[in-house]
Every structure is written in structure tokens, then in C-alpha cells.
Design a protein around this nucleic acid. Structure first.
Lengths: 153, 153
DNA sequence: CCGGTTTGGTTGAGCGTTCAACTAAACCGC
DNA sequence: GCGGTTTAGTTGAACGCTCAACCAAACCGG
């Protein structure tokens, strides 16, 4: 059967391209800043953040992947690098022998603490300083709706 | 001098993480769909789109990079691949002997035409179907503001 | 015009991500 | 408790991106 494509009208077109351009520019900028100032990509920063917030600064690999919005494979490679940098340690799970626990080292915590102020400043400058309080609220609602929709289906 | 970090309050924190999660999930999903159904990453799709919209389906490399939101280096590598696939041809610039013109081949146009319906459907399903018309409008304004702010400074 | 600077574009190395294949352990129904 | 199925995690190859170095042509001030 012939399924008609629901093409985008010109308003939608414009919205989609604007979103594409803006989110790419924002992420590229923040990623580049983080790489330059802290020597780590944003994805690694986020792994460290999630670990730092976990009880005892430890998380099971799958939970960490979930929290950091990463695939298992990606996390596996990333933790290998972070471990080589001395920022994360791998430990065995006490009861599930398949499990691995990623644990943030003191050096990892220090690296995060050094990177955080500059990065947060970047987020503020490039995102929040540009938007009105109402827009910030709108962006939150839109984002939460999208995530719900994407992970729900 | 000691510069105080302007940390994010909990509302901002929530907004930032929601945006991060949503935009990453959206892009990952669309990229994966495009790779699966059309055998090309989203960045390559966008190059083909911009070429297809240009007069005579030709653009100078720098203009194409600008239009596709890509670095020169990235575009150079990408066009090399697209040329190997037979989707794009490189031609010499008539007056500026440094210049290169990227030209969309018929095969490239056909590949784009085959990929477009599925991708557009994905954009509609994952983005527009989830948002109210008002939210679409908000997202456009927010995105345009952000882009202006990012490229202006 | 001549030499320095800017612009256009490419190149290769290094890195991070993806995908598919794989191992090992836990779970589950009978 | 045995055999099939999930679940947890790793691995290596292929690929795309970034960064810095680079070449060549155009531009520009004196």
C-alpha cells in the first residue's frame, strides 16, 4: 500500500532546522570548551558527574550507562579510558558475579571539581543567559515531554 | 582574583539535564534510523539536502560547510566518502583556483529521495507529534535566540 | 609588483562511538 | 536441578570527527 509521507510545512521546516542548528552549535561549543579546559569530552564529564552523585560514589555499570544516557558498549570503552586516567576504578559486584561496579577515585573527583566551574559557566553563558525565565520554563517542559515520548514508545 | 562560579539553581539544573537528555535521545534515534534505513549518518544526509537545494545542485565547499553546520575538515572527509559512494562529484571553481565545487550527482539525488520520506516521518513522529503547536512555536523562538546568541558572540 | 597575511581546502593521526559477535553468569519453567 | 533464555558486560573492527599541520592561491599595503 502507498503510505503518504507527512511532509513538514514551512513552519515546521523552519523549527526543525533552527533546533538542529542551535542544539548542534550549543553542544559543539560546550564540548570544545570542556576538551580545551579540562581535557575531557562532555560524555566523560557526565559519567564523572553521575558517579559523584551516587551513594559512596559507586554505580553498577548498567545503572551508570542508564544515568549517563550511554550504551553499554560506549560506557565500557569510556570506563576503560577513565580507568587508565586513574579517575575511575572497576570493582566486582558483591552478589551478582556478572556485575561490575564503577567507582570514582579521589583523583577523579578532583578532576571533576576542577572542570565543573568552567563548564557550568559555559552552560550559563551559552544557554541561560540567552533565554528569558519563561523560555527556560518552556524549554524544560518541551524537553521533558520529548523524553517521555521518546522513551515511552 | 577569585571569580565566583554562578552555579545552576535546581530549576536550571533540571532544565539543563532535561534538555541534554531529550536532544541526545532525539538525535541518537534519528541518526540510528537514518543509518539503518538509508545507510548514511545524519550529517551526510544534511550535506545532500543542502546540495539538492542549491542552484544547479552545486555549492562551493566553504558555503556547503557553512550551510551544513560543519567544519571545513569534516566536510572534506565527508565529501571524500560521498564521492566514493558516487553521490557527489568535486569540480574546479571557474575563477578562484583554490576553490572546489561539490556537485550532487543523479545517484546522490536518488539516494536522498529514497531516504527523505522515512527520515521526515521520523522527525514528525519523534518531535512534532509530541508537542503542541504552541510548544513548536516556543521551540523555534528558543532555538533561533540560542543560535543568534552563540554565533553573535 | 613584491612579501606578508589571509583564505580555501586537504591530510593524517588520534580519539570516541557504533555495531555485531561473544563470554559468562543469572533466571525460569518444568 | 537441567536446558533454554535473558541479562551484564567486553571486545575489535569500521567509521566519523577533531585538531594541528600543511600547501596553494588570492589579497593587500607600500
Amino acid at each position: 500500500m502507498a503510505v503518504m509521507t507527512r511532509w513538514l510545512d514551512s513552519d515546521e521546516q523552519r523549527t526543525w532546522r533552527a533546533f538542529l542548528t542551535a542544539s548542534r552549535a550549543l553542544m559543539d561549543t560546550l564540548d570544545r570548551e570542556l576538551q580545551r579546559d579540562a581535557g575531557m569530552p562532555h560524555a566523560y564529564y557526565e559519567i564523572l558527574v553521575r558517579l559523584s552523585e551516587a551513594p559512596d560514589r559507586r554505580l553498577r555499570m548498567s545503572d551508570l550507562a542508564e544515568a549517563a544516557g550511554s550504551s553499554r558498549s560506549r560506557l565500557s570503552h569510556a570506563v576503560a579510558r577513565l580507568e587508565a586516567a586513574g579517575w575511575v576504578r572497576r570493582e566486582e559486584h558483591p552478589t551478582d558475579r556478572r556485575g561490575q561496579i564503577a567507582s570514582l577515585t579521589d583523583a577523579g573527583f578532583a578532576a571533576l571539581a576542577a572542570a565543573a566551574p568552567g563548564h557550568v559557566e559555559g552552560v550559563r553563558r551559552h544557554l541561560f543567559d540567552a533565554l528569558s525565565p519563561a523560555q527556560v520554563d518552556q524549554l524544560r517542559r518541551i524537553s521533558e515531554t520529548l523524553t517521555e515520548h521518546l522513551t515511552g514508545s
